[in-house]
Design a protein around this nucleic acid. Sequence first.
DNA 1: ATATGGCCCTGGTTGC
DNA 2: TGCAACCAGGGCCATA
Length: 280
Amino acid sequence: MPELPEVETVARGVDERVRGERIVAVHFSRFPQPFKTPATRQKRGLEDRKLLAIHRTGKHIVCELSAAGPERNTIPGPQAQWIVHLGMTGRLVVTAAEAPIAQHTHARICLESGRELRFVDPRRFGRLEWRDLGKAEPFTAAGLEPLTIGKKAFADLFCRRTLSIKAALLNQRLLTGVGNIYADESLFHAGIDPQRRAGDLSAVELERLRKALQQTLRRAIELGGSSVSDYVDAAGVKGFFQLEHCVYQRTGEACRRCKSPIRRIVLAGRGTHFCPRCQR
DNA sequence: ATATGGCCCTGGTTGC
DNA sequence: TGCAACCAGGGCCATA
């Protein structure tokens, strides 16, 4: 499932491929809308604008759009945004216009070069949103960015909280971009039991967790993310970080550090994997 | 206020 | 072998 490293990989890939392109046409499927903004308004809001840049905020892909029509080249800076959340199974891929249309393709953004930016999402947990920057503020995520957060801000997030540290890491209002894979993996690398109350962790443990989280996310970005389920990047290529997973989806297998079998429990409604010996 | 659990949705896996 | 029930989970919403 796409989390921060996967979303970062997709955003970079899309940016490399379509930056500067003009949108000539937009097609939405007429399925029940996986959209935050009605499809007709998104279509109107996208057509005849330029894709100025594509970047990631939390688990969201933000496409900065120019003004529409002739003003495209005279008004500088982004005038609107198209925001893509991949949900669990969402894919955002750049293809040739002739490429066969995959099942569950909900949006096709046709570009001047003849290529298309396609949003495909079987489970339809993804969300598409269009924002007019003349009327609304630029998109921001509720939580803080885990890659750049400092020691004190990180520790403050968990102070006096009674929920489990695993649930806290998944809470997007605290940190934005951490999902089930990277929560489990960083708790393993920090040697912390996911069931512990967030507010009970010592300053030393929290700093170990912050370092582990940042290292894990950086390494995963280097490897193009984790391809579990059917994640692929903007070019349809899989990531490789799943090969370095220590606990996620390794239930019953030997811990890479101590050889104890990895345990799986349900925490905060999510499958949670950990080594009962290494994580205290 | 904070925390928890149900819901959406489909494809892959499990079980009879 | 074939089919149905079950499970996965990010974010949102209702509830305690």
